[in-house]
Nucleic acid binder design. Structure first.
Lengths: 151, 151
DNA sequence: CGTGAAAATAGAACCGC
DNA sequence: GCGGTTCTATTTTCACG
């Protein structure tokens, strides 16, 4: 699907605030509400927009600890490792990357002792390196800059 | 703010689909739509819900390359590094973490040559280690499992 | 927290470019 | 094809119990 400047603006706006009404979006791009609705519908159908989610402040719900865990998975344990990661509630994200640490997890836990338990389970299947997240100065879902648009 | 089981359910539901109507949410938790709306409003006001965002498939908008970049920032360049990171459109997230690699960036770019340009700029201020993201088996915003709720 | 009304929004049908 | 206008259904919001 081709993304023109108008749809790009809509994507950026919806990424920042998915609760904007079609009328509000229309004002941004100088289009009527139904025209915007139609564009958004097509963006959804073509898989450009894959969903809408609320962002939760984990600290405020009693989950104050987040960490990145690099995992160098033992060759024979890869399948088992993947299954474990998918089954762990505390795993927020899992990236399979190039390099010796094939998997990088982001985990969120209520206490250090729970983090310890989690790491114990991962250590059976991989060598891990844990980095506690101190702050997150940037957290977006797509790059800024309309220059990035393919034209 | 205290989160009871009902509000926890609402958070989980909204995290997965921020477009659920209050009536639909009400069915999930056996409450009327206005009661749900009031709870959600309080969750927003108290900062538990910090926003609502659309999730975009970057590949489909011509940004097929994502990478994690670990940055060991030179002691004297930390302020400059932070400013640079905040100014770069391609940086999707930036975590300040414990350990020698103080910053871990996630970047999204349209081409390898743009990634190269980006890394050149970072290398002036830090030692970097780049890991290309091959796949992302898990990507959530909060842990699953109601057991995590503080009670 | 529930009910019921009013206001706002979304969705569908149809017309014009 | 794409967008505008109108009309209807749904949803949100507010008053009241």
């Amino acid at each position: 699907m081709e993304i023109d400047r108008t749809s790009w603006k809509l994507l950026k706006a919806l990424e920042e605030n998915a609760r904007l009404t079609y009328a509000e979006l229309g004002k941004l791009v100088h289009l009527s509400a139904p025209a915007v609705a139609e564009r958004v519908r097509k963006l959804e159908e073509s898989g450009v927009i894959t969903g809408y989610g609320a962002t939760i402040n984990l600290e405020k719900v009693g989950i104050p600890i987040t960490a990145l865990v690099e995992c160098q998975v033992y060759r024979t344990k890869e399948r088992e490792f993947k299954a474990l990661v998918l089954s762990l509630d505390e795993v927020i994200s899992c990236h399979n990357v190039t390099g010796p640490y094939a998997f990088i997890l982001k985990v969120a836990v209520r206490s250090m002792s729970l983090l310890d338990e989690l790491l114990e389970r991962l250590i059976d299947l991989s060598d891990t390196n844990t980095m506690m997240i101190l702050s997150t100065p940037v957290d977006r879902k797509m790059p800024l800059g309309i220059d990035q648009v393919a034209e």
